[in-house]
Write a protein that binds this DNA or RNA. Structure first.
Lengths: 336, 336
DNA sequence: CTCTGCTGTGAGAGCGCTCTCTCAGCCCGG
DNA sequence: CCGGGCTGAGAGAGCGCTCTCACAGCAGAG
């Protein structure tokens, strides 16, 4: 191994193997048009010197960086320590990028100047593509990058009209199954704790609830939270004030469902006997609540992987099915 | 804004401003020896063209990449979705790197060929420095990189003798406070569920338990888990078989403590009346267990930040206080 | 035996930047 | 009025790689 700072270059390998730089480059990059004996000699020289290509030099000429940015929005930090959503996304993305030999550059917009940093960094093409995780409201950046020709894929259908390809899960379908389950088990006063109405996940899950209830003669009872446990607890309290006789609640996130369960217990309601509770997410933790939570599973890891796969496809220049919606599934446990 | 692929270069800015490339470079990099009028002219040209320096070209000559790798070990993935430890580390690291204008490159060793990938990537100096999060057992890579002169800082005191600087928390001090608390509240049969004994966190927390018990005439009752909820539940069952009369348990992680609580409840033990439970971590979720968990708080976010700060110092060439140990603190809630 | 057409290799330019070195211009002292 | 010292700007090399183009060598056709 070489000492600090004196890494072998293509030149050195070429000299040792007795060939030109171009030939070494061909071998290193797997070009087929190199005679076998020469290829072997080069391989040996590479091995001997412990040669590893300099990424900066390569990027400079190829205009590729072999790295992908994953941008997490401001809100991510708020829930980061308690909400396994972003970790799972990261994990899924990482799996696919690893397999494709791309690097994952993580960026958060939560810190001071975060938005400008991300904007500069991504428009400067320091990365080959950009992934956005669940943006709040209307974030102009994905569209802007898309227009500049930077490969972009976002998680969650963007609000408003947007040409940016996305990957999302079937919120509405999942919620409808959940509400149907409550109806089928004879519940008659079914409330919901919705998510923030500036996020597609919040909007769609409420829409699903409304859609399924529409078919029945039940009226909707709605409170809104922000996906945190605390907001779930508060919203539940409010819901019970609105209708003390409600016998079921669909909660738009598991964390909020946990909060709701805490409130229900404090107020002496038995679950599911008095009030049935269904969540949305299927976080690991929900198997361990008391009672274990019935919930709609969304495949978060898979969402991350699909996100990465789509982006890699765009980066590679393949045409992309503009968007993907992954299925959700009702997981019935004891709470409903 | 320019079309795809035709980003302005230094050259273009220089031409527009009527100066040389060198001068533009000086202005862009904030050199003080440029006359004010010229500086202003260059700034204007930069603005007008929307010039952003090409990172690859810069890296090529400076030999810096302005990015830092954070390596998460294999085990991270296993617990990723349920354990807020890594997310918090990432978050803390990210905060500091953002502030220093460095990029965060995330690498996991969990995927196929992960170790080799990380090794190649980091030794190839594609990053200015490498952070390792809580390695299992004895990982040779940090030491190896350190020897090659690559700036490295690891989280958690390395097992065995190692010259690699680390940042850790005061496991032993925290555990001693926890056990002392149990002793002071009159508990006489204090068991422990230890963490994996190939990790410093597991070893030290057990050592702290033993050390504090040593002073009293109480005997130690030990079971070992792997920091997961399930292992906590199993270990608790085992502990109760070993000593049905135990009246307290110090659990080496919050997740395992949750598992233990589940078991205790299943077996009809009241908490804290029959058995007091103390955890270690102070995850958010522990405020919401029933009863809320008394636990040792370790400052995970701060650990991440300190990790990044130390590494940035090494990268900058400042001499580094070889290691840092952050304080832990007992948080008393209802479970003990 | 020459010519054409291939295949495999080398020469060399150039990606966009930084940094050293050189030098022009100016101020001040002698 | 001239020379030395200083300051600020430009010229130019070169970081390590890829890729185009030229060309050597050889096979097969005419």
């Amino acid at each position: 191994m070489s000492e600090r700072g004196e890494r072998p270059t293509l030149e050195a390998v070429a000299r040792l193997a007795g060939v030109s730089r171009a030939t070494v480059s061909r071998v290193v990059n797997g070009s087929p048009k190199v005679a076998e004996p020469i290829r072997a000699a080069v391989r040996r020289a590479v091995e001997e010197l412990g040669y590893i290509p300099n990424a900066a030099a390569r990027s400079l000429v190829t205009q590729r960086t072999d790295s992908i940015a994953l941008v997490l929005p401001e809100s991510a930090s708020r829930v980061f320590s308690d909400d396994p959503f972003f970790p799972s996304i990261i994990h899924g993305v990482s799996q696919e990028l690893d397999a494709a030999n791309k690097q994952l550059v993580l960026m958060m917009t939560n810190t001071v100047g975060g938005y400008e940093r991300v904007e500069r960094y991504t428009t400067a093409r320091h990365v080959d593509g950009v992934l956005f995780a669940s943006t709040h409201g209307v974030d102009p950046l994905p569209g802007q990058l898309h227009r500049l020709g930077v490969p972009v894929v976002v998680s969650g259908r963007p609000l408003g009209r947007s040409p940016v390809p996305y990957v999302d899960v079937d919120h509405i379908g999942g919620v409808r199954k959940a509400v149907r389950h409550l109806l089928d088990s004879g519940r008659s006063r079914i409330a919901t704790i919705a998510g923030p109405q500036d996020m597609v996940a919040g909007i769609d899950r409420l829409a699903g609830y409304r859609a399924e209830l529409q078919g029945s003669d039940r009226r909707s009872i709605v409170a809104v939270g922000d996906f945190t446990r605390e907001s779930g607890a508060t919203a539940m309290r409010q819901l019970l004030e609105d209708d003390p006789l409600l016998d079921a609640v669909f909660v738009a996130s598991d964390l909020m469902a946990h909060g709701a369960i805490t409130t229900l217990r404090e107020l002496g309601r038995r679950i599911p006997d008095d009030v049935a509770v269904v969540g949305f997410d299927d976080f690991d933790i929900s198997r361990f609540t008391d009672p274990p939570l019935t919930t709609v599973r969304q495949p978060i890891l898979e969402l991350g992987r699909e996100l990465a796969r789509q982006l890699l496809r765009v980066v590679a220049g393949d045409d992309v099915p503009s968007s993907v919606v992954l299925p959700t599934e009702l997981v019935v446990r004891a709470s409903a």
